[in-house]
Design a protein around this nucleic acid. Structure first.
Length: 279
DNA sequence: GCTTACCTGTCG
DNA sequence: CGACAGGTAAGC
């Protein structure tokens, strides 16, 4: 589910609600959702820790504690929800993390792909795979750096490379499709076939799409909810994602193909230039 | 590269 | 019933 904008919206919403609070003893409803350390140590170590700050790296949310970090990845259907009082919905509830003041942070996840890690230090990020993450596309890459990074991977296909979190971190299926539409680039283009100007336009499109999506509170085409359980609204702004068979403003009909193993939506009128198109 | 696997649900 | 779903690692 969540890509960079959704995690950022959760971070911004949650930050003022939980900073300075202290965790009480958590309750693991599905112990498998805790990836590290083992369930006993997780509960023991999180108990009594105070929240210092929330940050984000790509699609990871980092909750900095007075000792260590609680790291969250929502994968497809994970949710991190804050409740001032009351009980969380029972369905798909995986981990309850109460604060000492009676409020509650909980992790729910229908498909159980998401997870939590409790790390002693930044040096432990190898536990999450985060140490191999590329730079955050929203915070850590300039236009010129992006052009330089792209020039090193001329043989890659555009969509596959942008989805690769080791290349740049934060983009997922929705925002890659929307960014490629805005830049007029076919998802199957070889990176090396882009002019420097096309690459700069792509970078601008990615930044604009992410910025707008954050302003709209993220995309809730299906499961996504923010930390207060609210839906985002950016799905109403989609140009191509999930719009197979609809007409683009250019008059052409949006197509769905499979690229890099993912459903890929594009406008054959606006997005030209792939090898496949040239015939 | 591509496919499979991890899970559970929705939609046609 | 099969296809598909916002992600990612692992195995040819």
């Amino acid at each position: 589910m969540p890509e960079l904008p959704e995690v950022e919206v959760i971070r911004r919403g949650l930050s003022p609600l939980v900073c300075e609070k202290r965790f009480a003893r958590p309750k693991l409803i599905s112990p498998g959702s805790v990836r590290y350390p083992d369930p006993g140590q997780f509960c023991e170590k999180l108990s009594g820790r105070k929240v210092i700050a929330l940050s984000r790296c790509g699609k990871y949310l980092l909750i900095e504690l007075d000792r260590g970090f609680l790291v969250v990845h929502l994968r497809m259907t994970g949710r991190l929800v804050y409740l001032e009082q009351g009980k969380p919905p029972a369905e798909h509830l995986r981990v309850q993390m109460p604060y000492t003041d009676g409020s509650l942070l909980y992790f729910s996840d229908m498909r159980k792909f998401g997870g939590l890690w409790l790390l002693d230090s930044r040096a432990e990020f190898s536990r999450t795979g985060m140490h191999r993450l590329g730079p955050d596309i929203y915070e850590q890459v300039s236009q010129e750096q992006f052009v330089a990074l792209m020039s090193k991977r001329p043989r890659a296909r555009l969509k596959a490379l942008l989805l690769n979190q080791h290349f740049v971190a934060g983009l997922g299926n929705i925002y890659v499709d929307e960014s490629l539409f805005r830049s007029g680039l076919h998802p199957c283009r070889e990176v090396g076939s882009l002019s420097p100007e096309e690459t700069r336009v792509l970078f601008r499109s990615i930044r604009d799409v992410l910025e707008e999506a954050i302003c709209y509170g993220g995309s809730s085409s299906r499961d996504y909810r923010d930390a207060l359980g609210e839906r985002g609204a950016f799905q109403e702004q989609f140009s191509v994602y999930g719009r197979k068979g609809h007409h683009c403003s250019c008059g052409a009909v949006i197509e769905r193909i499979v690229v890099a193993g993912r459903g890929t939506h594009y406008c054959p009128g606006c997005q030209r230039g792939s090898i496949q198109d040239s015939g």
